[in-house]
């Protein structure tokens, strides 16, 4: 059953690649639309340059740091909001504003305040923060009150309450927050790099490809960003799954 699903998914991806290649042949203009073959060639070319790996590593590292900052602050503040309604009411307008402000506004503010080298970390954390805050607060608020009452009677230690009551209740919320936040942090972080132009970054690579009208190279950078986000998301999801087990 699993093999059938795998074959089916692979076939669907292949069909889309073929459609993409056919469209590229029809358009016949590599600046307007570069096909998958040219994109892979451009990716191989990029792969021969050490700076490519440094750029990908730097972007992934910065997004990851931003993601972790968002995770930690979002988690801590959601716990405080759960315990103290005053904190929740106090943070509510802030979280709503953070959620609704366009990413590009954050990018510009971050560039003014912290410069281009820090923009990826700041933007990624600002994107990840409300996702963790909202999801974990929601998970905490639906924690089974009857189990918490039981823990109170049995005078369970906080560490055991977290392990046996809160974490199982938060599990699905944490998993969906991780999956959503890492993808969005990558998108936001790379957008910030395109605007801010920090040296050695995926965003910088995308920008240079754009000004050179090198569409296949731009798609190769995009493919790299997608793959990096996918791998990191899978890695973090795996770790989260192990921790929550």
């Amino acid at each position: 059953m699993k093999t059938r699903k795998y074959i089916r998914t692979t076939l669907i991806v292949l069909i889309w690649l073929v459609i993409w290649q056919i469209l590229a042949v029809i358009v016949n203009n590599s600046i307007l639309l570069s096909g998958p073959v040219d994109t892979v060639k451009a990716l191989i070319d990029l792969g021969t340059q050490p700076s490519f790996y440094l750029s990908v590593g730097a972007t992934a590292g910065k997004v990851l740091i931003g993601f972790l900052i968002g995770l930690v602050t979002g988690t801590l503040l959601s716990v405080l909001s759960y315990r103290f309604s005053l904190v929740k009411d106090f943070l509510s307008p802030f979280v709503s504003v953070v959620k609704s402000i366009p990413v590009v506004s954050f990018i510009i503010i971050a560039l003014i305040w912290a410069g281009s080298s820090n923009v990826t970390v700041i933007v990624s954390s600002v994107i990840a923060f409300p996702i963790f805050y909202k999801n974990i607060l929601e998970g905490l608020s639906v924690t089974d009150k009857k189990m918490l009452d039981m823990a109170k009677v049995f005078q369970m230690k906080t560490s055991k309450k977290i392990r046996y009551i809160y974490l199982p209740s938060l599990s699905s919320h944490i998993k969906s927050a991780v999956s959503l936040a890492i993808g969005m942090a990558f998108r936001g972080g790379i957008t910030a790099e395109v605007v801010g132009q920090p040296l050695r970054s995926v965003g910088n690579g995308l920008y240079r490809a754009k000004i050179n009208l090198a569409t296949s190279e731009m798609l190769a950078w995009t493919l790299t960003a997608v793959l990096a986000a996918f791998i990191i998301e899978r890695l973090i999801s795996f770790i989260v799954k192990k921790v929550l087990k």
Partner: peptide, 19 residues
């Protein structure tokens, strides 16, 4: 409790030791 209030995903042994 009337509704047991056990840790459903944990073993009998863990249910005892956890509290």
């Amino acid at each position: 409790f009337q509704e047991n209030r056990l840790f459903e995903k944990e073993t009998a042994l863990t249910n005892i030791l956890a509290v």
